[in-house]
Simulated scan of single mutants.
Amino acid sequence: MERIVDIATDGRHLSAHRGHLIVSEGHEEVGRVPLDDVGAVIVHAHGVTWTTNLVVALAERGAILLLCGAHHSPVAICLPIAGHHAQNGRMRAQWEARRPLAKQLWRALVIAKIGWQGAVIAAAGGSAAPYAFMARRVGSGDPENVEAQAARRYWGELMGAGFRRDRDAGGANGLLNYGYAVMRATCARAVVAAGLHPSVGVHHANRGNPLALADDLIEPFRPLVDWLTMRLLGAGVVEVTPAAKRAYAGLIALDLPGEDGTTTVWQAATRAAATLARAFQSGQASDLMLPRPPAALDLAALPVPVPA
């Protein structure tokens, strides 16, 4: 299982030494992680420095360096140039994918996301039926914007009628921002490992977005972050504390029930990215394999890493 390394203390220095990521303060080592175990390094703190050798070592292993700004929102990312052994062919297929294929892929992602939203609401004591109905209405490219319709209902049911999703706010929104940053880094890592370019999306197409494809792929995984956030809020965690960060970092190791047996969130993201690459090459959206929503009881029983 690859690890998400979070740097949240100001003034730390990051370097590579004998196969390890070394974290130092002053001239004293305060932590180390084997580089081969690192999937992503997320930097939230100020005054953090790092060596070129470390960035090169991370890139050689396909790991990423993600920098966050205010309220834990990602602002920059360092990605490896060379990734999967079949990268050239896969990127060419990705770039040349026709619009009908992209629209079918987006439809599959939206359906999966809405299904997961229904599972979260059901696990919280509501009904998943309206979400199943909305998922059936999603057309190619989601021309009716059913995703937004589901989101309006979902946030009201999950967080209350007065809640508004705000990337620049703290509290519950800050927790969501941090959780999404972790999941976004996970999806970006999976996309790069699959030999795809993260800036070429199937739906997200902002030219200034270096992680457009990761922002597509993250959609079915967002409700897992929402579910953990609700568990944290229920446990009295209302800010992004060290305990909350550990909980979100542990989310990628969470076991999910699937058609082929139990798999972790990280493995599900990796499979989704690999099958997305296959879909680009085959021209068949049906090749894309996304994590299916669990039953409400299965989701409620997941050992979510909520701090005591």
Rank of each mutant, 00 (worst) to 15 (best):
R92F: 09
A93E: 03
A93V: 04
W95A: 10
E96N: 11
E96D: 14
A97Q: 02
R98V: 09
R98Y: 11
R98M: 11
R98W: 03
R98S: 12
A102H: 07
K103I: 02
K103L: 15
Q104S: 14
W106E: 05
R107C: 06
A108G: 10
A108S: 15
L109D: 09
A112N: 09
Q117T: 04
G118A: 13
A119N: 05
A119D: 03
A119T: 13
I121H: 00
G125A: 01
Y131S: 07
A132M: 12
F133V: 15
F133D: 15
R136E: 15
R136T: 13
R137L: 15
S140D: 15
P143K: 14
E144P: 03
N145W: 12
V146W: 03
E147S: 02
E147R: 01
A148S: 07
A148V: 04
A150F: 12
R152S: 05
R152D: 03
R153M: 12
W155Q: 00
G156C: 06
E157D: 12
E157L: 10
G160M: 08
G160N: 09
G160P: 09
G162D: 14
R167N: 11
R167T: 11
G171Y: 00
N173I: 05
G174R: 00
L175P: 00
L175D: 02
L176G: 08
N177M: 06
N177I: 07
N177V: 06
G179I: 02
A181S: 15
A181Q: 10
V182R: 01
A185Y: 05
A185C: 09
T186Q: 05
T186M: 12
R189F: 01
A190F: 06
V191P: 01
V192I: 14
V192W: 01
A193T: 13
A193I: 06
A194I: 06
P198R: 06
G201V: 03
H203L: 04
A205Y: 05
N206A: 06
R207F: 11
L211C: 13
A212N: 15
A214G: 12
D215L: 01
D216Y: 03
